[in-house]
């Protein structure tokens, strides 16, 4: 009896604690998805009959394939760079204990305080050969004109750089935090067994924080798939339109507000959502994401 009462009480406590999240999830997650689903099969300017044809219309749109390719290239660059650099930097940060650790952590976070819009301006300034403080470096690389930088072939790299510097610092500090959760006993044992710093990093620390890296990978992938601010703002500045409909999210935005096609826009957004969910499910179930706490596992 006592046991079932305590389990009922913990169920109640759990429900109370979960409720705020559930309410937000319903209001700002589930309900918009339902709305989008209804909108996506409604009538559109190109397809007055509505229905699933809207999805086919979006895929057949001349802007769809180029935007998809851009986003794929962006993700192929962005996700691995984020994971590798963040892992390496947080491992290095973890080895620097003592008085330099705190200033270093601060330094990593500073670039992240620039939001997308500011970052775009700063990068424009840095990369424009006639304005850049690194003019001589750019000239040494043979870049003397803005249009050698701001051309369609290389935009993915620029957007990756922008997104990387906005996002990486935070993640380095977060992963440093997860490295802190590794028990000193484990590291001590490794050291006694003769592991050097490289082996400890590669064979002990990284496997132990793997699930946090997986978690980061999912979020970074989702953010990358929805890349919007960087190309949208660049397109609105000096090189007007250069990255117009560059990403799928921009296409979704333009479908809604320029092509007067909310149904198509909703259809595209749902497609992005499905890709995100599938990617998350695959990654979660291919790893031990939900098993134990990893570090303390016996």
């Amino acid at each position: 009896m006592a046991r079932s009462r305590s389990s009922r009480r913990s169920l109640l406590a759990g429900s109370i604690m979960f409720a705020p999240y559930l309410i937000l999830l319903l209001l700002f997650g589930i309900w918009p998805i339902i709305q989008a689903t209804i909108t996506s099969i409604g009538p559109s300017i190109v397809n007055p009959a509505g229905g699933l044809q809207n999805f086919a219309d979006v895929v057949a749109d001349v802007r769809f394939l180029p935007a998809l390719m851009n986003v794929v290239v962006f993700l192929l660059l962005y996700v691995p760079i984020m994971i590798i650099v963040v892992s390496v930097m947080s491992l290095l940060l973890d080895t620097v204990q003592g008085r330099w650790n705190l200033p270093l952590r601060l330094t990593y976070i500073v670039p992240a305080s620039m939001t997308g819009a500011t970052a775009v301006l700063i990068w424009y300034f840095m990369l424009e050969p006639s304005l850049s403080p690194y003019q001589s470096a750019l000239h040494a690389l043979g870049i003397t004109q803005g249009n050698q930088i701001w051309r369609q072939g290389g935009l993915a790299w620029i957007f990756v750089a922008m997104a990387f510097f906005v996002g990486a610092g935070n993640w380095i500090v977060v992963q440093y935090g997860s490295l802190q959760s590794i028990s000193e006993d484990v590291l001590e044992a490794a050291r006694i067994d003769g592991a050097n710093a490289w082996q400890i990093g590669w064979r002990i620390k990284l496997p132990l924080i793997r699930k946090y890296l997986v978690y980061m990978g999912i979020l970074v992938f989702a953010a990358g798939l929805q890349v919007f601010v960087e190309p949208q703002l660049i397109s609105g500045s000096v090189y007007t339109g250069i990255a117009k409909d560059w990403s799928l999210n921009q296409l979704s935005y333009d479908l809604a507000f320029q092509s007067n096609n909310l149904a198509g826009s909703a259809a595209l957004s749902l497609m992005l959502l499905v890709v995100c969910i599938i990617a998350a499910i695959v990654v979660i179930f291919r790893t031990d994401f939900f098993e134990g706490t990893g570090v303390g596992k016996k």
Partner: peptide, 19 residues
Amino acid sequence: VRFPFNAQFGATLSADINN
């Protein structure tokens, strides 16, 4: 017109000329 006639200059016409 209703389609993005002007915005498309930057994505194609002037990008090509610049390049």
